[in-house]
Design a protein around this nucleic acid. Structure first.
Lengths: 233, 233
DNA sequence: TTCAATAAATGAACATGTTCATATTTTCCA
DNA sequence: TGGAAAATATGAACATGTTCATTTATTGAA
């Protein structure tokens, strides 16, 4: 997904890259994102300043990698979620996700911030991160289809796009939430969970289902499914 | 709202400040935010680099001022909105707002980006901009109360906080929207408008009204009404 | 083994946001 | 009017993200 040299099998490069990334993420967590300079990172990784740019075209790419990891963790966690009602699974997934995100608030703020500009190279919804978007979408789809009251697949796919958007909104809210212990965000998650519980039966009604489809169509491909493969390789 | 010297009545300072701001906004609009350096601004304003920092503590404060202006324009526009159904007024206001924002996408992206970090000095939802938040909230309140099918005041106040959040969400979506002519965003506005139309009657039902109140409580003070005055000065 | 091509790594130089010590101008009181 | 205090203004210096010409290490073929 990047034009940086991420060689398939070379040993040296991939290891250096890893070293730099580890150093960066450790420093971000310990000193904060803005307080960590690239010179710090290079020093901590035991390499030169210039080398970091061989592997990460910009500072934000380092947090993009953090986001990748967090997304993968969410992915695994959703798979571990017990079979239960949709609303319960949603609430559980989000509570756990926010807990995991907590130490990285500043870093994620920087990432989301950088990604907000439409032309950003690290836009979380841009083409650059197609793979990531596909992963996250599939997470929400599995959260839905794995629930005991899962709707039929077409509706589930629509819901997945909507959940994706809701999740992102909640994270944005969380980033701004200055209430003690981020209680507001937890309240908001509970609210969303309760709304899902309340509205789940209504998904059977054509008007509701149609509204969901309309919304999902708007959200695609932004929060949509992975693009269809052109070739089978 | 700022500790910058913005003297009440001095002539020189306020005029210099204005000159710098005008130069900056003109350059932002013409060359883009990131392409405009503070040295450009100083040169265009005919002053020294250092002086810009006397009036604007950081580059983002210049766009914060742009945001202020846009908010005031939205404010005036809502007052000009013909009396009509709530949903129609909402759709009109947002269409117009997005049209006005269009030339400033990059600048607003930078502002929202910078404002995303929880500890940012220009957080759009932070204490720094209490006045602005109060203004925006009152805009949505008046949009609601001025409609031909306005709900009662308590419900209207709750709705105002929700509209505030919806508006911000739409702007964030718009910032990311890469569809031609930002059609997706316009579709989303239409969707929101239709949902308001559909749900307006349901606001009378206690469960719906209660859900709105619960949501508004979570959103306050983030998207809430102006803080109550302690003293009458 | 040798050597040329490629990969990996370096650090100086640069661009730009930001700070700061200093200078200039204005104000206003004795 | 003189002059000190405050307001306004300056530009050099700094911090840090980023680029780039150059150097060093590795690889692979002759």
């Amino acid at each position: 997904m990047s034009d940086n040299p991420v060689p398939e099998r070379a040993g040296k490069a991939v290891q250096t890259r890893e070293t730099i990334l580890e150093a960066a993420l450790e420093l971000f967590a310990r000193k904060g994102y803005n307080q960590t300079t690239l010179r710090d990172i290079a020093a901590s990784a035991g390499c030169s300043l210039g080398l970091t740019y061989r592997y990460f075209a910009r500072k934000e790419e380092l947090i993009l990698e953090l986001y990748r990891r967090l997304a993968r963790e969410l992915n695994e966690e959703v798979d571990r979620l017990p079979r239960a009602k949709l609303a319960a699974r949603f609430g559980r997934a989000l509570d756990a996700d926010l807990k995991r995100l907590a130490p990285h608030r500043a870093a994620l703020g920087a990432l989301f911030g950088a990604g907000l500009s439409p032309d950003s190279e690290v836009a979380l919804l841009g083409e650059r991160v197609d793979d990531l978007r596909a992963l996250v979408w599939s997470v929400w789809l599995r959260l839905i289809t794995g629930s005991s009251d899962a709707p039929a697949l077409p509706e589930a796919r629509n819901l997945a796009a909507i959940f994706y958007a809701v999740h992102l909104s909640l994270v944005l809210f969380w980033l701004q939430d200055r209430s003690p212990n981020q209680k507001k965000t937890r309240d908001l998650v509970a609210f969303a969970r309760d709304m899902i519980r309340l509205l789940r039966p209504a998904l059977g009604l054509p008007p509701v289902s149609r509204a969901a489809a309309r919304l999902a169509r708007i959200f695609t491909p932004m929060f949509g499914p992975p693009p269809v493969e052109k070739d089978e390789g």
